[in-house]
Design a protein around this nucleic acid. Structure first.
Lengths: 250, 250
DNA sequence: GCAAAAGTGTTAGTCCTACACCCATGG
DNA sequence: CCATGGGTGTAGGACTAACACTTTTGC
């Protein structure tokens, strides 16, 4: 995959952009990957533009690959943001002469609608890379509510809502957790996404009743206190169960 | 609201279109509004383009108003369709000289991504009007699976899936039924959307348990057999209940 | 051996399912 | 008066929610 840079905008379609809310889960915290702009010092979601002969999904995959280094990421379109004034304050259109970057102002200065995607990645596999307009690309806790540029805070919130409502229909646990994980870890993930606490014993009974997990003989060693068992997803059963939607609410 | 016509495309943004899946419910059938093109004789969803200073939601409202005559329609964005080749076969780009319509080929000939909306309308309030490229605008039964142009069959199916999954979170019954309706009518609507039959007595108990309906003293007269009671939605309770999502599955 | 986390079990109440019976209406 | 659809009720089983006790581990 060739790297796409903002300095050659000639192959991009006008008016259409996309933004990715990349979720990761680490140390019992739900995190989002954000860029920090060199010039304006604002935080922003990784995003990009649509190439002339590319689907939005492919464009999002391209952005994901460039920021995380990963292929085969779980990706879901969730909403288009099209308020007419939303792109007026795009920091990218500001002058970046001091960086030696030549920006195509005519391109950046147009009105953009942005298609929002959310992505689920395994935290430990990601090695974030900033783009050419940014000096950093880092995880921030969703709960910290960092101020983002333009309407990006809105985009994150809508992504969260969307993910929450699809918890029983999309393989969210599978994509956010490592291959092997403990029951308390899975529960924390659910609690974080749902924004509420769940009963430890009822959670375990319910999730096991779906038959989507394989209990392993190993336990998580090294931690303090009693070592919990490790589990892995039974992918075949998981997929089958998701087709009907996991039953019941949380 | 001024009528927007396809013969003046100068105010439209390039590359962006929208299509509306307009659902109605009549005589126990779920219906969709489709246009029939004068030149190509193909069926198509009502759609349009985005004006330079307009949100997608406003554009969709504009299209809805023009085709149905209605304001204040329930409208929901559900997906963007962006396969690169999808707009190649757009019949609108064909020559329509014989109709005396001057088409801006350069505009129609570009690649379009299309934002899909579904709309819910009260069947009896709609007076469908064709646009200037069509000779008819009529309801077709969803179950008839009429062949539509381009990827419009896909768009209808995705709209259905989306509406089905949101049945407990959006005021779908309220928007598709007239102000007063009977329990069997409401049940038929649910059965049609879900694609399966429900037990009459359990359905009634469950829907009443939500406290979202007011039972009226009137009954539906004129029909054969025992006359059913009329109900209306208790909008305040309905909205409140939807915020948490109606509990349980169907 | 103590504190904290994890494994396992029980019970009461609620909800869902699958039915049966009676009533009203038009032919 | 009968066929059909609509109004109402009930019993059994499944699932959920709330809660207690025991076990393991590091210090």
């Amino acid at each position: 995959m060739t790297k796409t840079v903002f300095t050659d905008t000639s192959k991009f379609l006008d008016h259409i952009s996309l933004d990715c809310v990349i979720f990761g889960f680490h140390e019992n915290e739900l995190k989002v990957l954000v860029l920090h702009y060199k010039t304006t010092k604002e935080y922003a979601l990784p995003g990009g533009f649509l190439l002339a002969d590319e689907s939005l999904e492919d464009a999002a995959k391209r952005v994901l690959k460039e920021r995380t280094g990963l292929d085969n990421i779980f990706l879901k379109q969730f909403k288009v943001f099209s308020t007419p004034g939303r792109s007026k304050s795009n920091p990218a259109i500001k002058d970046v002469k001091d960086l030696g970057i030549q920006i195509n102002h005519a391109f950046f200065d147009q009105r953009f609608i942005s298609v929002g995607f959310y992505a689920l990645v395994e935290f430990t596999k990601v090695h974030p890379k900033p783009d050419e307009l940014s000096d950093s690309c880092d995880w921030v806790n969703v709960t910290d509510n960092i101020e983002l540029m333009m309407d990006h805070n809105l985009i994150v919130n809508e992504a969260l809502d969307s993910m929450r409502s699809q918890l029983n229909h999309q393989p969210i646990g599978y994509n956010l957790l490592p291959d092997k994980f403990t029951m308390p870890e899975l529960q924390k993930l659910y609690e974080t996404i749902l924004g509420k606490e769940l009963d430890r014993r009822n959670f375990q009974r319910k999730i096991l009743s779906y038959k989507i997990l394989n209990k392993l003989d190993e336990r998580r060693k090294g931690g303090a206190y009693k070592s919990p068992y490790l589990y892995e997803f039974n992918l075949a059963n998981y997929q089958k169960a998701l087709n009907n939607g996991l039953s019941g609410g949380w």
